[in-house]
């Protein structure tokens, strides 16, 4: 296999590289999952959130991980089978690290009902698994896997969705999202929406970060705005609405009120989407 030949040339063994990749995955799961592992609302949601919604979140995590693995993967993935394998490993790492940390923090006790134990671990495993997948790409990109690569349009939108989902999962469970929506007036929401869009476009196109995007000289600036930034913002808003719905923050709210909460959460989600385009 091409992968094995490349590894043999490196002088490192395949199992050695795999274990290192696992280590990076664990590090990523911990680093990116710890804020949520220590968020009180996530523990409570683990046992009170509607099981159908939790199930939906767990199910949707699977294609997300597979698509992310296809793009960034633990090792150089050459096809969907390796992507499925990497996604499964990432999910497993997410579950194990959540279980260990929650148990170590005393949040999983013997006298708790099984539903509560499983719910807490399952909910935390989603961001931890995304962290495990990202950990491999961010904490150890020693191969030039980004050189000469083409990303499809759908792939770009998916990356934005993944970034938005990650930050949404961080922030949506907390009470502060709803308190902000309750305290804001419509004018504040309007300004926040404009700022989100402007920051999204600026971070990716105008501020020349490494990983930033450019347009060929003959392309006017509004090409990227209409083709990427606006759809990216809609993706961020849809992801925010989904996260709020999963965590039962939108039930019984009127449309205007829900829209305010979605715009509030859309602010970090859109920055997450922009960051994903820069980093991934």
């Amino acid at each position: 296999m091409a992968g094995k030949a490349a590894a043999a040339e490196d002088g490192t063994s395949d199992p050695g590289r795999f274990v290192t990749g696992l280590g990076r995955g664990i590090a990523g799961a911990l680093f990116l999952g710890l804020p949520m592992l220590m968020t009180m609302e996530m523990w409570y949601l683990g046992f009170y959130m509607a099981r159908e919604r939790l199930f939906l979140l767990l199910m949707l995590n699977i294609p997300l991980l597979i698509l992310l693995a296809h793009r960034i993967g633990f090792e150089k993935t050459h096809g969907w089978r390796e992507a499925v394998r990497d996604a499964t490993i990432a999910y497993g790492i997410g579950i194990i690290t959540s279980l260990v940390v929650l148990a170590a923090l005393g949040l999983l006790r013997g006298d708790m009902p099984a539903g509560e134990l499983v719910g807490k671990v399952a909910l935390q495993s989603v961001p931890a698994s995304i962290g495990a997948m990202l950990g491999r790409s961010q904490l150890g990109q020693d191969e030039d896997t980004t050189e000469g690569r083409e990303t499809t349009y759908a792939g770009e939108l998916l990356l934005m969705g993944a970034g938005a989902l990650f930050l949404s999962l961080n922030i949506a469970p907390t009470d502060e999202t709803m308190v902000l929506a309750y305290k804001m007036t419509n004018w504040h929401a309007f300004v926040v929406a404009i700022i989100s869009i402007a920051l999204m476009h600026g971070f990716v196109y105008a501020v020349s970060f490494v990983g930033g995007h450019e347009l060929s000289p003959q392309t006017p600036w509004w090409h990227a705005f209409v083709r990427f930034t606006l759809p990216g913002y809609i993706v961020a808003l849809v992801i925010s609405a989904f996260a709020l719905w999963v965590f039962e923050r939108l039930d019984d709210s009127s449309l205007s009120q829900s829209l305010l909460s979605v715009i509030v959460l859309g602010f970090p989600a859109s920055l997450g989407a922009a960051a994903a385009r820069l980093i991934l």
Partner: peptide, 17 residues
Amino acid sequence: MTRSDKGRHRERHDPHW
């Protein structure tokens, strides 16, 4: 479509409809 090279990404000028 986006092409990545040397840490910068370049959008295509002639995108799909």
